[in-house]
Structures are given as C-alpha cells and as structure tokens.
C-alpha cells in the first residue's frame, strides 16, 4: 500500500508543478513532509543539495530518494514513474494538437497567471529551506559568502556548493 501511496502522491506532485524543480519544493514539503512524514525538512534540503551536484532533474532525484527510503527499490520506481507520468501524457496530448493549442488565447492567459505564481513558489521554497539551513552564525556567514560568490564570480554552482560544504565540515559544531 505504501507503494501505491507513493505513486499517487508523486503523480499529484508531477501534475501540479509548473516552473521547474525549485517551484516543486513547496508542494513536496506539503505532501512528503507534512502529510506523509516520509522525510524531514532537513533531509529534503540534503536531497536538494545532492540534486545540485548530480546529473538529472531535482524532481526525479527527490522522487527516487523518497521512494527508496520509504519502500526500497520498488518504492523508488513507483515514485519516479508517478512524477513522470502526468506530464508524459499531457505533453503527448499537446504535441498531437500543437497547431490548434498554440492559437488558443486562453492558454496564453492562463500561463500569464501561472508564471508569477511559479516565482512565488520559488520564493516560498527559499523561505522553507532557510528555516533548516540558516540555524546559527556560521551558516548565516556561509550563506552571505555564497551569495557574494554566486553573484560576483564565475565559479560554478557545484563549485560553490562544494566549497560551502568544506567550510561546513570545518565549522560543524
């Protein structure tokens, strides 16, 4: 039953996520952490960190991780297929009737509405993650340092995360 639950939950997450992996985080938090207690918030932040350092989309990484932790290999398979399935069907549907779809004015308007909400979702994801990541003076200093490095240097995202992680090992209380 756990496996079916995983499939349905991740199907729902896949169906209602617009605006990329980061915008998916608040929905993951509600479903995976608050409702099903499959992960803690800090574990989810760990998986987001791993996602930034490994190949592949965050959503697939999170689904695989949550599924594996909850119900082993079968769980990982169900959660991952669940998160992929809704968009698979929807994209096929749109691709078949793209010419008609493109001209529908309501489609354009709906997306004008969704885009700012996707920004709000990423904003709220930042807020969520900050609650477990910015917990003392050290982490706040690492955050400020990372912000400056990300903004003003050309060091890659992965590079910044690894450097921050090394500082974390040194400063870990």
């Amino acid at each position: 039953m756990e496996i079916l639950e995983l499939f349905i939950t991740f199907f729902k997450i896949g169906l209602f996520s617009f605006g990329g992996g980061y915008a998916m985080i608040p929905l993951m938090e509600k479903e995976v952490i608050n409702i099903h207690h499959w992960l803690s918030l800090s574990e989810m932040v760990d998986v987001i960190t791993i996602s930034q350092m490994t190949p592949g989309p965050i959503a697939i990484n999170l689904a695989t991780f949550v599924g594996f932790k909850t119900a082993g290999f079968g769980g990982a398979l169900c959660a991952t297929l669940g998160v992929m399935l809704p968009s698979f069907v929807i994209v096929l549907f749109i691709a078949r009737s793209y010419e008609k779809f493109k001209e529908l004015d309501v489609v354009r308007r709906v997306f004008q509405g969704i885009r700012p909400m996707a920004v709000a979702l990423v904003g709220s994801a930042t807020f969520l993650v900050a609650q477990t990541s910015l917990i003392d003076v050290n982490t706040i200093l690492i955050a400020l340092g990372s912000l400056l490095v990300l903004k003003f240097t050309k060091i890659s995202l992965m590079g910044v995360i690894i450097i921050a992680g090394v500082f974390g090992i040194i400063l870990y209380p």
Binding site: Q52, T139, A143, L157, I161, I162, A164, I169
Partner: peptide, 15 residues
Amino acid sequence: GFFYGAAPAVTMLLF
C-alpha cells in the same frame, strides 16, 4: 558537516 555548510549555499541559490 558537509550538508550543514552546503545547505546555506543552496538557500542562496534558490533566492
């Protein structure tokens, strides 16, 4: 320790 340090960087990435 690694995740303790990496998480603030990921937060800023989201920001």
